[in-house]
């Protein structure tokens, strides 16, 4: 009777559903009771309850306090300590989405003064791509939050298509053709937008490392793993593309010079003056 699936999103019209990121829900269809699991950020009232709601009702919808003792729950309702590795992975994925949000705000201010139509097309499509990625990261989260025992049933209902991986590859290729070939290690920077996307790339790698050390990693959809791996390549390309759009110079790695003993003495002498 009680089933857990993401289809609760479609049932939003009847119950009033309050959700924060990484909350998942179980709905008992017959009574519209909502089983709150995950980080205590889910709250639901039916419309009749809503009418008779008192002032506490309003308050409890954001902070349910169920996580105050350091536990949170998974997609199947199982409660675990918040320092459980699965929440570490979910948190990293969430953090990545937040960083993408920041990077995109900066990206919206980026101007391209060139005339190449293909480049302009790439530039214009990027905001949409980033939004799609942010949405898919929620799907990635729901896959990660589904441990072994409930994986089979869930995967059937909520597939993560290889198609998404291919899309990212096409996006990378479309940008990469315009970029100068890589001959050196690139340094983060060049412009603010590029720097932010390098942050995304490094946070994405952390999420991937966290994901790989997950206990039930072998039951995670391979497309999800591929997707996360491909994303860091995407952010690397986007970071370079941002530098290209503003016609700025890419900073490359040069071996920093170690001053000789004589030189450093001279340097100190100069600083003192």
């Amino acid at each position: 009777m009680i089933k857990h699936s993401l289809s609760f999103i479609n049932k939003l019209n009847s119950p009033r559903l309050i959700i924060n990121n990484y909350s998942c829900s179980r709905l008992n269809n017959s009574s519209n009771n909502l089983y709150n699991y995950s980080n205590s950020k889910l709250y639901c009232t039916t419309s009749t309850e809503n009418n008779s709601s008192n002032s506490n009702d309003h308050h409890s919808r954001i902070y349910t306090k169920t996580g105050d003792k350091g536990t949170s729950s998974l997609f199947n309702g199982e409660r675990r300590a918040k320092n459980d590795h699965v929440f570490c992975v979910l948190g990293s994925v969430d953090e990545l989405s937040a960083h993408i949000g920041v990077a995109k705000e900066y990206y919206l201010n980026l101007q391209y003064s060139g005339t190449n139509e293909k480049v302009r097309e790439c530039k214009d499509q990027m905001v949409q791509q980033l939004e799609e990625i942010q949405c898919l990261l929620l799907d990635v989260g729901s896959h990660i939050a589904t441990p072994k025992d409930s994986a089979d049933a869930f995967l059937k209902r909520s597939p993560f298509a290889d198609y998404h991986v291919e899309s990212v590859e096409h996006w990378i290729d479309a940008m990469d053709v315009h970029l100068p070939p890589l001959r050196n290690f690139i340094l983060p920077g060049g412009n603010l937008q590029s720097a932010q996307f390098h942050v995304c790339r490094s946070v994405c790698r952390r999420a991937e490392r966290d994901l790989v050390s997950l206990d039930h990693v072998d039951t995670v959809n391979p497309s999800v793993m591929k997707y996360v791996n491909r994303l860091s390549d995407y952010f690397f390309t986007v970071a370079r593309f941002c530098v290209f759009l503003t016609n700025s110079q890419e900073a490359v790695y040069k071996r920093p010079k170690v001053p000789s003993e004589h030189e450093s003495k001279y340097q100190r002498h100069l600083e003192k003056r």
């Binding site: 999103i9 559903l17 924060n20 953090e95 949000g101 995109k104 705000e105 942010q134 949405c135 929620l138």
Partner: peptide, 25 residues
């Protein structure tokens, strides 16, 4: 709130607050 919200086109202040939320977690 009726949906999972996503920090897109929300302005830099909001975007950084979402980032802070993730770090807080």
């Amino acid at each position: 709130l009726k949906h999972f919200i996503i920090p897109i086109r929300v302005g830099l202040a909001s975007a950084h607050l979402h980032q802070a939320r993730a770090i807080c977690r």
